[in-house]
Design a protein around this nucleic acid. Structure first.
Lengths: 135, 135
DNA sequence: TACATTTGTAATATATTTTATTACAGTATG
DNA sequence: CATACTGTAATAAAATATATTACAAATGTA
């Protein structure tokens, strides 16, 4: 299931790309997204775990990019937000005694795998810099 | 946001394709999906609105395909479940006084449009018959 | 005709997921 | 040492998805 993580993360990264020399506070970023600062900090924690950004605590603290935005693609950002494209699965265990129930998730899964490959190819072609230059 | 609609719908249609001469009851279909029959009937209502299936009320009633499964593609099924691929938008109105906030949804939107085109191309190449033959 | 079975649909409830809020310890700056 | 931040946990609220109950209407069959 897809939440707003990707959109939030790319918004954060675009801001950081626009102001590469400043440590932006979660409050400031939250003001642009119109989102609770705690949620911004949570997404930033994820980005930090992937070494995409670095933060400074304390007064005048905040977050800045720690990679070259030309060298990171939307595909990586997509993957960092734990997301894959899929159109859902049977939520409950389908009936294993039915030929369709038995294999449905497996067949959906291979369909979605193909979908992800196509989408990844697209996202791979767009750097964070490219995306930011649209603004 | 993506729910299980597509997965449920394709499950239903696969069953109907496998048993093209029978009216399958929502109870029977629900048993394969392991889902509440009312939800099956709701998805069937949607398929009926698109003239993909026909139902018979009353005793021994049920639903059967009303189109040739070779002539309908997963793309159409995808679209019938009201879905588009997207990775989410800023849920709240982003700050219009920020250059990024002002354009973020528009730029995400064009990204997602491209994504949908790629995915549609893939789904267009798979007929319901193709999909069903995997079982 | 009377009964059983099934669709169609509304109303309501439960569960799950997402987003928001509150709170506060820890850290750096001036 | 006061201020302004991050980091994170705990909890609450809102939104969405799924399940259940109920029943009118339709239709086949005894």
């Amino acid at each position: 299931m897809i939440s707003g993580k990707f959109a939030i993360t790319i918004h954060i990264l675009t801001l950081l790309t626009k102001y590469p020399n400043d440590f932006l506070s979660s409050e400031y970023i939250a003001g642009s997204i119109n989102l609770n600062p705690v949620l911004v900090r949570k997404e930033i924690a994820n980005l930090k775990a992937h070494h995409i950004v670095e933060s400074k605590e304390g007064k005048n603290g905040g977050t800045k990019l720690s990679v070259d935005p030309a060298k990171i693609t939307l595909k990586e950002i997509f993957e960092m937000t734990f997301e894959t494209i899929n159109l859902g699965y049977a939520k409950n265990q389908p009936n294993p005694d039915c030929p369709v129930g038995k294999k449905i998730n497996q067949n959906l899964s291979s369909l979605y795998t193909d979908m992800n490959q196509k989408v990844s190819l697209q996202l791979e072609g767009i750097s964070l810099e490219d995306f930011s230059n649209q603004f």
